[in-house]
Simulated scan of single mutants.
Amino acid sequence: MKEKITRCSWANTDNILLRNYHDNEWGRPCHDNQKLFELLSLEIMQAGLSWQTVLNKRQAFKGALANFDYQIVQTLTPQLPQLLTNSKIIRNQKKLSAIISNAKVLTLMELRQKTFDQYLWNFVNNIPIQHHYHSHEEIPRTNQIAKQISRQMKKDGFRFTGPIVVYSFMQAAGLINDHEISCYRYTELLKCMDNGYK
């Protein structure tokens, strides 16, 4: 008999996309610049909507936004009217414009010999923050470090990166481990800290 896996309460679902996202991505430290841009962009799109809605449209977003290659996305302003007619994605002009603008910020950052990975992980001294929550209801919508990062990102030209979006992004990219302590991923992430999350 297969052993029952205990997941975070929000991942106890029949939605395969949501379950796979929880099991394989959420909370796992990410250092890939393009993937970090994708996660940030998806969190921007999620604001005010359900995460399941965003995941259901993720593949369509990848097709519409050059697989989140920010060097290409930064050039998409002329295509914005066309994007807003694409019924397969979330057609929100403010959010799409912010994503294109953020891609420009990242491209300029690289020209200055700094990566998005370095920029983000410097805020937590390159070590994931380990929280110890028993239930999803205990997890805050934001915290002081997310507010600090949000202020700096705004200063550096990022758009649509308020403290709530930033906190969710930190959770997704693994800067914070907010898996419930009973979740199998919480323990796995703690164990793999010593070997660089490989």
Rank of each mutant, 00 (worst) to 15 (best):
46 Q>E: 07
75 T>G: 01
138 E>N: 10
53 T>V: 12
2 K>W: 03
100 I>L: 03
129 I>H: 06
31 H>Q: 08
112 R>T: 09
25 E>R: 02
4 K>H: 09
170 M>T: 13
75 T>I: 00
74 Q>I: 00
30 C>A: 11
55 L>E: 02
185 R>I: 12
115 T>C: 06
164 I>W: 02
71 Q>S: 13
113 Q>Y: 11
26 W>M: 04
151 R>L: 09
191 K>G: 01
34 Q>F: 10
162 G>R: 09
129 I>K: 11
38 E>T: 10
1 M>H: 11
130 Q>E: 14
96 L>A: 07
67 N>Y: 04
51 W>S: 04
88 K>C: 02
182 S>K: 15
164 I>P: 06
35 K>A: 00
128 P>N: 10
81 P>S: 07
20 N>W: 02
191 K>P: 01
35 K>N: 01
47 A>E: 13
111 L>H: 13
15 N>H: 11
69 D>C: 09
74 Q>H: 03
132 H>G: 00
101 S>C: 08
152 Q>Y: 05
120 L>M: 15
10 W>Y: 04
198 K>S: 15
93 Q>I: 00
23 D>W: 10
196 G>T: 10
99 I>T: 06
174 G>M: 07
27 G>H: 03
195 N>A: 01
130 Q>I: 15
94 K>N: 13
76 L>D: 06
105 V>Y: 06
81 P>I: 05
147 K>P: 00
156 D>N: 09
19 R>M: 06
178 D>E: 07
139 I>G: 11
24 N>V: 00
111 L>K: 12
187 T>N: 14
138 E>P: 10
157 G>Q: 09
197 Y>T: 08
80 L>M: 10
178 D>G: 06
176 I>D: 12
38 E>D: 07
143 N>V: 07
14 D>Q: 11
79 Q>L: 03
142 T>S: 13
77 T>G: 01
166 V>A: 05
106 L>W: 03
191 K>Q: 15
144 Q>C: 00
168 S>P: 06
129 I>D: 11
137 E>M: 10
68 F>K: 09
111 L>D: 14
27 G>F: 05
167 Y>H: 12
197 Y>V: 08
162 G>L: 13
53 T>I: 11
175 L>H: 07
62 K>Y: 05
182 S>T: 15
147 K>G: 12
102 N>P: 02
168 S>F: 05
59 Q>I: 12
174 G>F: 03
164 I>T: 15
